[in-house]
Amino acid sequence: MTAAIEVEDLRKSYGEVQALDGLSLRVEEGEFFGLLGPNGAGKTTFINVLVGLVRKSGGHAEVFGHDVVDEYREARDAIGLAPQEFNVDRFFPIEEVLVHKAGYHGIPEDEALDRAHEALKRVGIYDKREERFDWLSGGMKRRLLLARALVTGPELLILDEPTAGVDVQLRHDLWEVVRDLNEHGTTILLTTHYIEEAERLCDRVAVVDDGRKVEVATPDDLMNRGTDTVTVTLRDAPAETPPLGDTLDRVESVELDGDRLVVRASNGGAVTPDLLNELEAMGHVVVDLDISRTSLEEIFVELTGDDR
């Protein structure tokens, strides 16, 4: 099957700064793919290479099998981009901005107008169609960027920090729109600082740092690599850490903190029943239990060494 995005050994340097340093990545058609990384990791540079706003220094990049340099027209026609920056034409009402954008992609004017209306309704700002961009609120501007990306009917939708600085309601609205698009076959590439977004939406995520891929996995896979924390509260505080038997081999550490026993294990849920049985066999009475799963954010910090 043709990949929606395939890049090999992608490089981009700005003088001494290596923004992309041999990035290789494959995003399958129809996938909801997340790109995580700290500021300056190279996420936006990577996106801009795909859409032609940055010239790569080396390597190879394709969108649906089309080289982004040699077959740039086919590659760009397949992409809808909602960028971080508000780069919208200020001279025209937003309805016309969308009609123009659709026109650049070869969509005849009548159809372009219908599509513009549909896109504006989809993101909930149809009533504002005759306003200019500068008169929209911050949230509406963000919605317009998504509408502009949708108006060309892209096979690949690229969302670069789409929910940065927006309220919770809008964030959920946008999630709903992109999830629906993905369910209907649109490939989505999402960069985000909100780990929760990646956890909720993405089939797979790539963690990128210093212009290189650090890891690619499903959010669940990544989370399974982390360490869970099982906190058992005992009725009577033991004088010393209880001497665990078979369970001890399956945990990473055991600490006693007053009446609380804190156990770290790679799979806390599987270890807990045996742990409780052992404690009860030793005569301890368990009065509370808490299992805290590793968050994707903690994995991310662990992988990139970034504690933002």
Binding site: N87, R90, R148
Partner: peptide, 17 residues
């Protein structure tokens, strides 16, 4: 002006030759 406000990107990211 398109460069200054970056809306020329609407054209540059299109399939126009």
């Amino acid at each position: 002006h398109g460069r200054w406000n970056e809306y020329i990107h609407e054209v540059l990211t299109s399939p126009l030759s």
